[in-house]
Design a protein around this nucleic acid. Structure first.
Lengths: 348, 348
DNA sequence: CTGAAAGCGCTTACAG
DNA sequence: CTGAAAGCGCTTACAG
């Protein structure tokens, strides 16, 4: 025992076994142990068997840290997410985690709001962990950061948002088309006094949904009663709805379901109005609460499953196949008509 | 350049800089670089300054993997969580992630349902990552696994569940006291035909809430109209409520808010009953939706923040101070009376 | 197929 | 305070 041996375990304490311990017990070289646990490496069946038996006896498992140091792969994907209030995110995160886990990857979570300063610090930490890839679901993220990842060679996928920078992959729902569908639906329902409680203008989801909606309204020759930024916040959205209704709106497109629930609550319980009798409401996301009878909300579906599948596929292509051509995927979702909008006029 | 140098970067490609690169540029030893980035290590201000300048120029940050290999600490805490449908979990996970992040730790997510086989596999992967600690919020978890962590020296905290094994720390809300509060509230409201849509009997939350509730009911000389396991599932819970009401119940304690919303939906929209006029409903958790006007649910609050704080404190004591005496923390929460229960009889 | 050896990028006694 | 060197636990050419 050399004088450098600074970690001297007490006689009774069992160290975590290493590949050398296994090798000794199995009567083979340490290399053989390593090969046994490296898929595709060349070991004879007999050797592998001996190694596996010894490993089981000692409770040995390869140290991923040491492996990662050599291979440069951690099988960890970083996830930057903002608030989880909006139920769309937990639903997506759960699917994401499952899909990644099936492929032997795991999610390291970083929470960062819309504060760029915090996001920057978080980003440094992410890089420290040598994650194999990065999924950004936080509402805002500075361009500088994404650039830093690119030079570090870390694949990035923006989830449910996009950026001007075309070199970054993103997966979104087709927010412009979605917004347009809502406009068509209101018009088909005979509405002309239409308002929009918009998603936060600092987010691409908010801007795109508004644009799709308003452009299509204009194409129908209509202009909105008003457009107010709801900031993805219940209180702000409720107040916006009150104002739009006061200004005569009898149909409201709300930038996401989370705000739409607040709008419905304030219309029904605050103002004593009937939905859809007095005011029709349409949301965006189709989170599971939207289908609950208490709301039964007409909304544009964001197909979380398909968005997650596309995100994971893009990420795996970059990590496993080195295919880092940016993919820009917009997934179309249907308008799910429920009971917060009036039945359409019957065709003759 | 030795013949072993297998990674020969093309002339243009920039490798991720290492401490040696920084040392060369700064004109100091590699040790000095390491010390500069090791809080508490002895470096002169001048050396540190030179190192920092060189590091910035090269964009150097210490490789955490290499550091972890030596220190044995990863600053990663594993989180095993089941489904995120129940809104209590996303709310708790968000707080947990934030609290840990403030202390320089991050959450590695593992999703595992109530399937022990999956949980076992997941657990092996967790151990592979050499996480510094483990938070188990999954509804069920086999004893064997927890034991494995203990021998591996990984601190474990059970979140929102406990186990017979007293050597495991846990943080729960005081579910027995909570259940008892609901019984008192119903009795004070003059109810005698009381039913319970219980939380899943396979979970300690489900069993403890039921026990606290039923024992207190018995203390009041009452026995329930019926007790049906709602399995923490909307459909099962709704069906259970229908049966209990058919059997004459006019007050239902539902094992968590998530099920309580389904019960309210089915009472109001399926059976056309008034809540609380025909049937009073009480939930458990006080998730944010419970306060929304559409439900306005009377419920027992699980103080997510305090539970998270206690969990993080327990975890940090174990990781940072080596204090692994098991802590068993039950946090009391108030009954939050809203509008799904009748006003109490006035005191004279 | 197999073993000896180099090396991944750090931290940390050790000896000035 | 500082540098040379060992070592963390692996993977992977290299040479049989």
């Amino acid at each position: 025992m050399s004088s450098h041996d600074h970690r001297v375990p007490p006689p009774g304490e069992r160290r975590t076994p290493t590949s050398f311990d296994v090798a000794r017990l199995a009567g083979v070289s340490q290399s053989a142990v390593s090969r046994t646990f490296t898929p595709g490496a060349s070991v004879s069946a007999g050797t592998a068997e001996k190694v596996r038996r010894a490993a089981d006896a000692l409770g040995y498992r390869p140290n991923i840290l040491a492996r990662s140091l050599i291979t440069g792969r951690t099988r960890i994907v970083g996830l930057v997410v903002a608030y989880l209030h909006n139920q769309f995110y937990p639903e997506a995160v759960e699917r994401l985690s499952n899909a990644l886990q099936e492929r032997g990857f795991h999610l390291l979570v970083f929470t960062a709001g819309n504060d760029d300063a915090v996001t920057d610090r978080v980003m440094e930490e992410l890089l420290d962990y040598r994650v194999d890839g990065l999924i950004l679901a936080s509402t805002s993220i500075s361009n500088r950061l994404a650039a830093r990842c690119r030079t570090a060679g870390i694949p990035v996928v923006l989830f449910n948002r996009h950026q001007d920078d075309p070199s970054l992959s993103h997966v979104v729902s087709d927010n412009i088309a979605g917004g347009a569908k809502v406009a068509d639906h209101f018009v088909a329902g005979g509405h002309t006094r239409i308002g929009h409680v918009a998603g936060w203008a600092g987010s691409t989801t908010g801007r795109d949904r508004a644009k799709g909606f308003l452009d299509r309204l204009a194409a129908h020759g209509l202009s909105p009663v008003g457009v107010i930024d709801g900031m993805y916040d219940r209180g702000v959205a409720a107040e916006a709805a009150r104002r739009l209704v006061a200004d005569g709106a009898d149909a409201l497109f709300v930038g996401n379901d989370h705000m739409a629930f607040a709008v419905m609550d304030t219309l029904r319980h605050g103002l004593g109005l009937d939905v859809p009798g007095d005011v029709a409401v349409v949301g965006y996301d189709d989170v599971s609460v939207a289908a609950w009878p208490a709301y039964d909300l007409t909304t544009v579906r964001q197909a979380a499953r398909r968005m997650v599948d596309a995100t994971v596929a893009t990420m795996m292509a970059a990590i496993e196949d080195g295919d880092d051509t940016p993919r820009h995927i917009a997934i179309d979702g249907p308008l799910v008509v429920r009971r917060t909008t009036r039945p359409l006029k019957e065709a003759p």
